[in-house]
Design a protein around this nucleic acid. Sequence first.
DNA 1: CTGAAAGCGCTTACAG
DNA 2: CTGAAAGCGCTTACAG
Lengths: 342, 342
Amino acid sequence: MRVTLRDIARECGVDVATVSRSLNGAYGVREKTRRKVLTVAKRLNYRPNRLAKGLVTGRSRTLAMVISDIRNPFFAELARGAEDAAYRAGYELILCNSDLSAEKQMQYVHSLLEKRVEGILMNSVAGLSHSERQELSQSGVPIVLLNRPPAQVQGFSTVLADNFAGGERAGNYLIHLRHRVIWHLTGPRQHGNLAERTRGFRKALEGAGTEVASLTIRGHHNTEGAYQMMKKLLRQHRAPTAVFAANDAMAFGAIRAIFEAGRRVPEDISVIGFDDVELAGIIRPPLTTIHQPKYEMGWAAVEVLLQQAERPGQWSPQHRLMEVRLVERESCRPISRRAHDQ
Amino acid sequence: MRVTLRDIARECGVDVATVSRSLNGAYGVREKTRRKVLTVAKRLNYRPNRLAKGLVTGRSRTLAMVISDIRNPFFAELARGAEDAAYRAGYELILCNSDLSAEKQMQYVHSLLEKRVEGILMNSVAGLSHSERQELSQSGVPIVLLNRPPAQVQGFSTVLADNFAGGERAGNYLIHLRHRVIWHLTGPRQHGNLAERTRGFRKALEGAGTEVASLTIRGHHNTEGAYQMMKKLLRQHRAPTAVFAANDAMAFGAIRAIFEAGRRVPEDISVIGFDDVELAGIIRPPLTTIHQPKYEMGWAAVEVLLQQAERPGQWSPQHRLMEVRLVERESCRPISRRAHDQ
DNA sequence: CTGAAAGCGCTTACAG
DNA sequence: CTGAAAGCGCTTACAG
């Protein structure tokens, strides 16, 4: 049925070893022999069996990605970057949706290990028990955690956006626009990435060299959470001139609350987000935000994995911090000097 | 290093064949032996090498999906449905982004065949030459085409939304709302899916049993195309009371043109789309549209593939038509009887 | 119920 | 430069 090395060998009157060598490295094969083998292989439409090859070489030429849900555009973008990098290197990428279930995550990883994938991208190991994490980090296959602070667990590599620099950038931008009363909406302290954004933001304000009144409010870090926070705050306090939402979803909630309170964005209140999700460019007004290099993060993660796959048993975890950048759209505007002086 | 069947066999004092049988089907193995093997396997944390297993059984337990771009939410939804179905059956899913490049598509398929995937989901073979398509359909591995009219090429299975029924549903809905002047914005005739929607829509109008003035306009089937068409039409003709856009993207363009012309949706003009993309529920007003069962299509495609994988060499292409449904949101409203009588 | 053998389709020292 | 052999880690008739 399927044509194998033996078929080619028979056809050429040589040994399968010679065929194998001709088809691969080809060192130490007479040019003429090699050419003949190649011709016959092509004529017979030979397709090497990668399972057999993988069995002897121990390399499957496949990577895998275990994420919560590919329908989340953030992960789709990561996946695309990862897959492009894998394709370029001649690897395939297996996609797994875990919904963050610890059980599914472990099951996937076990299946993947059985298939001898050479590396795994994961978006989280937060739900796993200590011993489960240990098992993963000691499995022998390189694993990179996406968008997680390093040292959450030993043994994993990480690829992370520079949240601190992003928060700082957002703060500097608002100050540059002469805002002096700024609210910062964010999530719980334990959320590492958000905490970094807050730290960076505060550093910017402190370094402003001028008085800035800022208020940090914590709540659910989603659209609804921010909507509720903002709604309540606008009733209790005098409105700020700007708000920095710790992510775009929160920015959307804040904007809704602002409109409902009869104010306008950006005329009355400027809003800046973080992430640069697709919707950010679509809503009215288009949201100014800090862009996370999602595609590049996926790509970088695969680079790390591939590098480690080259040194079985003797690589050590790597940590990559990815640059973020400000995307100016229409949700922020400067305070006029006049207004400012009043 | 890694523990194999031999290690377990040695430890248990039996042959590897017995270990293999115990771990698998287990028919004809003494219960006591089997239990012992299982215990030792667990203790040694044994992981079967799927490459070896695949080599001998000829089954890789993996499927693949070759789509344009996972960042397109339509494909992300399909992918999720497919992956869930695969996971349930103990299969993994390889993700490939082709950007519709014929070269990438063929390269992917070749790699996938080498890895002995047991089935492939593709979103198109339109860009391939006749001989390339032949090569695919005769490769021996089952392939299902997503969202393509059957008989585009012989030898492929298909999973397709019922575009005709959807168009008909949209037409009936508008008629039910007492609309009698309706514009239909669609793409070029050659576009099979859109053509079906148009056919269904016309059937509804013809069956209305009352006079309906309808106009079908063809152009680029995207937001910008529909925007331009609608803008121009509104200047040249008396406005309709409703428009049926052949897809949601077009509906968005039409709505923009309507607003810019100083009319309101749905007060002055009702708009219905097709697809039910995520944005449809987010824009103002939320778009009434025909829902395509994307998740279910991905799931069904895997079902087809798995069924075929069970009968190597003796399956024949299968075609599944998936039901669509109307999602009523806020972009359509009835013509009041009074207005109607005027 | 279990063992010994052959084989899946490759690669890679080892000779020559 | 090339062949013969061994082996990767499994499964599966075939005996017994």
